[in-house]
Structure formats: structure tokens, C-alpha cells
Amino acid sequence: MKDQVLAGLFGLCVGDALGVPVEFNPRTYLKENPIRDMIGYGTYDQPAGTWSDDSSLTFCLAESLCNGYDIYDIGHKCVQWYHKGYWTPYGEVFDIGNTTRMALDTLCYELIRPDLAGMTGAHSNGNGSLMRILPLAYFLKNTAFEEKVPIITAVSSITHRHIRSIIACVIYVEFACYLLNGFDLDESYTKMQTSVKDYYKDEQELEHFKAILDKSVTNYAEEDIHSSGYVVHTLEASLWCLFNSETYAEAVLKAVNLGEDTDTTGAVTGGLAGIIYGIHSIPETWINVLASNNEIYDLAERLAEKCQST
């Protein structure tokens, strides 16, 4: 379990950090100036190895789960990140999505349950809950699907409460759970499809996930893959990168070089790629340059210990 948690958390964080310097750059620019290694500065003028809100909020969730599942504590840690720089590389927040910002303001300033703070509009389906949901896979990997869904729903709903964002998170966590339980890439995908389609069989929103649930997205040409901040685009892009790569590095570099929301596509891809290929597949030079890498290692150890005991 320890190596699996290390692989997922470091895999996600490295993918995030690779994408931070070129976030918002179009694919055409990255075709001419591709990311091949960990670089610094660029979009946010941050040193190499700096990770963003994707990793910060992932670590907030992981930290909370070290003490068991408590939606109030998860929400509190997210607010602490936003207002006090908790689990940030250098003590301050330099990147936050609008939907996440509004939800955490609501959670901070109104007397509201954390899972009621998120935005519910169809236009509030950014990737801000998908990017941080991975730690639930470790916590829920031996839990029945119908028992996983309410927990994933609640954790997504802290910031993103629309059913589309929730289903994206369910797909991602369920896929990760099968990978963690030893199934290969294709088996995990097939089993995830069955679970999701059976559970949401009467849900019209599944139409937005057609390319994922019939697996056609894995065979798309690159020009048909979008890499915006829309949650369905991020999930599609990440799955496409996984099915069209043979190593961790190839998957995350492919994700980042799609352009636009580079850090989140890199993070969402990187978490799963880490699990698939293992901690030793992640270039050591990339891990070594990460900000606070010792703290991340300690967090992974604590989360693994907790998940082994549950």
C-alpha cells in the first residue's frame, strides 16, 4: 500500500508541477516548445518543482483522511489552504479556480454544511473537484460501489456539486480503485464502465460521458482531444494519455503538451499513471526537485498506514 500511495501522490504532484510553468499556453505553442523536463518560472514565475492548487487540495484531502473520513474536516482544510496557505509549496496560494473560490468563500462565511457549499449550475463544471479526488481511491478501494458513491459525491460537492462533476469523480475514483486492486489498465476500465453504467442507468447526464463509457475516447486522434478546464475534457484527455502511452513520463508529458489547463491535465493523468507504472517509474530527478518533497513522502506514509488499518 505504501508504494501505491507514494506513486499516486507523487505521480499527481509531478504532473502538476510539470504543467505549472506553461498553464494557459495553447497546443500550437507547445508543439514548437514542448515540455520535456521539469522547468521553472513561466506562467506564474515560480521555481522548478512548484505545484499548484491541484496538489494542495489533494494533500488537504489526504491529510484529513489520515484521521478517517470527516466531511467537516475536509472542508476546514480546504478553507485553511485558501485563506492561510495550508499545504502550499511556499505558504501562499497563487492559483485558484473561480468555482472553487466561490464555494470556499461560501463555506468560510456562511453557516453551511461542507457538502452543500459547492456550485450546482451546469456552467460550474470545471475540473476543480476531479483534480483533488484521488486520495479517496486509497480510502475506498475495498468498499462496495454503492457505498463509495455518497462519499465521493460529498467530497466533490464541497466545491463542485453538479451531477456532471460528481460522475467524473466517481469514474476516476472507481477506475483507480480497480488499478489499486491489481487489475490491469483494460480490465480496470471495463469494470469501471460496468459499475458506473449500472448505477447511473437512468441518469441523463451520462450522455456527456459517452466517449468515456464506450471507450471510443481512447482511440481519438490528438486533434479531437480537448484540454480545457471543463471536467469532461480533463477526464477524456487524461484517459487518452494513459491509453496512448507506455511509461509514466510519456503519459504526463503528453498530457502537459496538450496545452491550456496543463497543470490539471498533468495532475489527473499523473495520479493514475503513477499507480499504473509504480513509484520507481517516476524520474527521480523530478521528484527531487519538488517543493516539500519530504513532507509529501511523510503524508503518503501516514495515509498508507491509515488505509491499511481500515
Rank of each mutant, 00 (worst) to 15 (best):
V5M: 06
L6H: 05
G8R: 00
F10A: 06
L18G: 14
E23M: 02
E23H: 01
R27G: 01
Y29A: 04
E32V: 07
N33A: 15
Y41L: 10
D53M: 11
N67C: 14
I71A: 08
Y72F: 14
H76L: 13
H83E: 13
T88E: 05
G91N: 06
D95P: 15
I96F: 08
T99R: 01
Y109W: 13
Y109H: 10
L111S: 14
D115N: 14
G118M: 05
T120E: 13
S124I: 00
G126C: 00
A144N: 14
A144K: 07
I152G: 10
A168G: 11
I171Y: 05
V173M: 12
E174N: 06
F175S: 01
A176T: 11
F183T: 05
D184W: 09
S195D: 09
K197M: 11
Y199C: 09
L206R: 15
H208W: 09
L213Y: 03
S216H: 07
S228C: 04
Y230H: 04
V231D: 02
T234Y: 01
E236G: 07
E236D: 03
A237Q: 07
S238D: 07
S238T: 04
Y248F: 15
I275K: 02
I275F: 01
G278R: 02
I279D: 08
S281W: 00
P283S: 12
E284P: 03
T285E: 14
D298K: 11
K306S: 10
